[in-house]
Nucleic acid binder design. Structure first.
Lengths: 198, 198
DNA sequence: CCCTCTATTGAACGGGGTTCATAATAGCAG
DNA sequence: CTGCTATTATGAACCCCGTTCAATAGAGGG
């Protein structure tokens, strides 16, 4: 029974991630409490720290799952999209908006977790981000066939950032709530206009 | 001596705002501590709460000043810009980027402060935002003379959000640091492309 | 069954925002 | 100037929270 401890810990680890995920999804990142986690998981407070370095590690684990779901949603939208590359971009961006709106707290947690200064982003983050960028880059390469890969990378990042900004400020409460339709309109506006007369 | 107390409190209030502003600018919003504020201001811990409801109120006061400086920078850039409305947009957006980069912590604090759920954004916020939107809207109206005011408002918000997104993700540490030049390039790319063939 | 070594536990620690009983002070009447 | 009272300022104390670690429980081998 060598791996018994590891097994128990792995189970607790998964359990904690699920519980934290639910908490973040329903009440937001700032509502996550170590003591709540422990009591919901039926474990001791200290047990959390046998399995995770600190709460941020749990949040990162949750974020990895969220990011993965996001990527899957975007991929699914892309799979159902028409061949036209501009439409593909629009469909993906609206899928991004859709995911953010439907998973507001979890989506926010992706960006609200504070990294220690100077610490690099985790590997899975860069990987999922790269995947998203690839989804965008492919149609862009069709639309702009005469661009350097370097220029394409810049275009890709610029478009992703723009859509992200539109969704971020659109879903932000400070602006008194932009209607969901308007967000989609802005996304389509930016993408269509951007990709016109290529 | 009727207004003596009010005077003293007003002075403390201003003092606390200045001190908090410096702290946020140098170390970020999360480094703001009530006890530090009190000792730096040479006042009692509780004195803070005679003058502000809570720390968030101080942050909001700092943010109002930051937002005002931002608006002034953008306005200054606009004043020095050429007549061409597209160039005006580019110059303003790069001024926005410049301000964010030069005042990273203060700029972040504008968006990192968490409002109580359901609470409306403060008046000055909407006002400064409206001012920024007006700066953008004017050249846009020249570029797109045949659009509804409503459509123009959507364009304005979309462009601001896009630039904001580019700056936000560009300055974010997670992406391992996008060079400042690349951020400016992305901004120019989006704006020029967006405003072409109007 | 005991012994040892590991894993688990939750009380305690440190640090932070906020409050409130108390002390200090200002204003005023005599 | 001296009490007296109402107002203001103070900072110790409260509560919450993440994290730690001495003490306990438990597993495995002899």
């Amino acid at each position: 029974m060598a791996g018994k401890v590891a097994e128990r810990r792995a189970a607790l680890r998964d359990n904690l991630i699920i519980i934290a995920e639910k908490r973040i999804a329903s009440d937001g990142l700032s509502a996550l409490r170590a003591r709540d986690l422990a009591s919901d998981a039926g474990c001791a407070l200290g047990a959390i720290y046998n399995v995770f370095g600190d709460l941020t590690d749990i949040v990162l684990a949750v974020n990895a799952r969220t990011f993965h779901r996001l990527g899957a949603d975007v991929a699914a939208a892309l799979a159902d999209a028409p061949q036209d590359p501009v439409e593909q971009l629009v469909v993906m961006a609206q899928a991004y908006h859709c995911f953010a709106a439907a998973n507001l707290h979890s989506w926010r947690a992706l960006f609200d977790v504070e990294r220690a200064p100077g610490e690099a982003a985790p590997d899975w983050y860069l990987q999922e981000m790269g995947q998203l960028f690839a989804y965008i880059s492919d149609p862009l390469a069709v639309i702009f066939p005469n661009r350097d890969p370097q220029e394409l990378a810049l275009l890709t990042r610029a478009l992703f950032s723009s859509v992200h900004g539109i969704v971020l400020l659109g879903l932000d409460g400070a602006s008194a709530g932009v209607p969901s339709d308007d967000i989609d309109k802005m996304i389509a506006l930016i993408l269509r206009q951007f990709t016109s007369n290529s």
